[in-house]
Design a protein around this nucleic acid. Structure first.
Lengths: 321, 321
DNA sequence: ATGGTGATTTGACAAATGTCAGAGCAATCG
DNA sequence: CGATTGCTCTGACATTTGTCAAATCACCAT
């Protein structure tokens, strides 16, 4: 698609200003427009991702705690958000760091799998706009029927919009009333094709869900709190793309899981870079399960969570030397 | 490596200013320093790649000519630098566009092969600093013994410096006096290992050399103008990483080529993304040979060169329907 | 202690940038 | 055909940012 003449001037202004370091009045003279227009165009260029400005996330990854976590848990990269950072609330900072870290890993041509949840939605919300037109953003799990604030398709589409990339939604419900219907839908060519495409992703972005009454699968109505509690008794420890996993990160063998339309967990594990973002400390057990299950290669967590993980792995390695 | 406390404040200032969009005076208050210091730190952050600012190169790739070239020659992406762009000299613009396009393709963890020449050096020179610490920049061919302005190791190291990445030089001469010595050196473990590592690259950046008296292999003293002219008679059409190729882009079977220490051309062809940058229109034949030989997936050229290539491919496809 | 040295930080000013009300202009509609 | 609507563009002003000489600080050798 050729640039509209209208956008062309925004690109030109951005190129001259940011790449050639001309001043706004020089750009204005070159393009025969007023300097005020140049300023407007440049803002538009920043807001739409024609110009991308990214600050390094080293501040969060170059940290003793982060290094120790990488080594102990065998992760590729860890970002630790420290509580005491100049009055910035870690809860709001986690999605910001995650968005920056994510953007550092995205590149032209990437295929990105995205799950859903409050955390993922917040990440999308604070993500700055970028220009990766030939990237593709895939939805990792089916949709919720009920209106819910952080729907899978919303997360996927919002991230695609921020990247100026193509978003591909999975047009199937997350949960169906019967196992057989779920199986039928899963084998529908359109759906099967899309689920298969997930294994071609090179990047995944998700959080893990907890197994308690605040879990998003309860909030969105997929399960009642009592049903989830019962599954918790049976060993359910976390939620990945809607699916329940046990403490070792293996798919639970239960009717609920069989009623879902979601990414095959082995396909998810096969994605080379899996960014896990956890904002709430209450998700500790779920996160540990996700790490054991091989769902994490890149991790964004709070310092307190990092310390707890480190302690857990230390005791683990002592008991199983 | 943990950040020095000194750099830490630069990172913090950059993070607050660019990611959180605070004003300089707000950043100053948060960090308990003067606003002037904040301004200084921010400049430092921009100059060192802690903050990267990139304008989209769409202006050059979203162009009818570029699209037609992609289709006709089967290339992944083409950037065309149009002559009439607001008094910007295309000769200086080519390296700028190439540097931006290159940076859009680089990502954390990339392994990048770099050849040498005036064009590549100019690209390195105008390239803005970036923060891709875990990238690796490899030298694709041996070094010149004689002092020369655009040495392979300089190109490699300068690009590595700009990216804050690791640069790996090939500590061998480009050309040796005898074929047997070249063979011996090639099989030295240290060198053999490095040459083998080239096939693991995921990105290559180079230009093609012409076969005439201005060729860089003549200028750097690897061959005399007469010797090169004689090889030209035998069919030599272009130069890739010091090696002579014929009009079809195949390695010339000649003593000169056997005396070289350089990347195996099949390994180069196997690199998934090969960015070819040609600034001079006189390199037309050499470029056509390089394209035929499969050395190009991404191309940066002038509009006039693009038109000539398009014409050539049109006549080719007419004669061989 | 003390003076020197180089690097860092600051205050004050100059320069550049952001903003917004109103002008201008093109397309659309009655 | 003129009025209306919805744009973009501009000029003028307010705000923000860049710069640099001078001050301060940290460190070191005497």
């Amino acid at each position: 698609m050729i640039l509209r003449a209208n956008d062309q001037i925004v690109h030109k202004a951005a190129w001259l200003y940011y790449t050639h370091n001309l001043r706004q009045d020089e750009v204005a003279r070159r393009l025969n427009i007023s300097r005020a227009s140049v300023a407007t165009y440049l803002r538009k260029a920043r807001e739409t991702g024609i110009v991308s400005i990214a600050a390094s996330t080293q501040l969060f990854s170059d940290d003793i705690l982060a290094r120790r976590l990488e080594d102990a848990l065998g992760l590729d990269a860890v970002w630790v958000v420290t509580e005491d950072r100049q009055a910035l609330d870690p809860a709001t900072e986690i999605p910001v760091v995650a968005a920056s870290a994510f953007l550092e890993l995205v590149q032209s041509g990437s295929r990105i799998g995205v799950a859903w949840g409050r955390t993922v939605y917040h990440i999308a919300d604070v993500m700055s706009y970028a220009d990766v037109q030939d990237a593709t953003v895939l939805q990792l799990c089916g949709n919720l029927g009920a209106p819910y604030n952080y729907r899978p398709d919303q997360c996927t589409m919002e991230i695609a919009r921020r990247l100026n990339a193509q978003g591909i939604n999975l047009y199937a419900p997350l949960i169906l009333s019967s196992e057989s219907l779920a199986a039928d839908i899963r084998s529908e060519p359109v759906i099967a094709e899309q689920l298969a495409a997930i294994s071609a992703c090179d990047l995944a972005l998700y959080s893990v869900g907890s197994v308690d009454k605040d879990s998003h699968i309860v909030r969105c109505g997929a399960l009642t709190a009592d049903e989830l509690a019962a599954l918790g008794e049976e060993g359910a420890t976390g939620v990945i793309g809607g699916q329940l996993i046990d403490a070792d990160g293996q798919l639970m063998d239960c009717a609920y899981n069989r009623r879902l339309i979601s990414a095959d967990l082995d396909a998810v594990r096969a994605i080379p870079r899996r960014i896990m973002v956890v904002a709430e400390d209450s998700k500790f057990d779920a996160l540990a399960a996700a790490i054991r299950g091989g769902f994490v290669s890149h991790l964004v967590v709070t310092a307190s969570m990092a310390r707890r993980l480190l302690d857990l792995w230390d005791t683990q390695s002592q008991t199983t030397p």
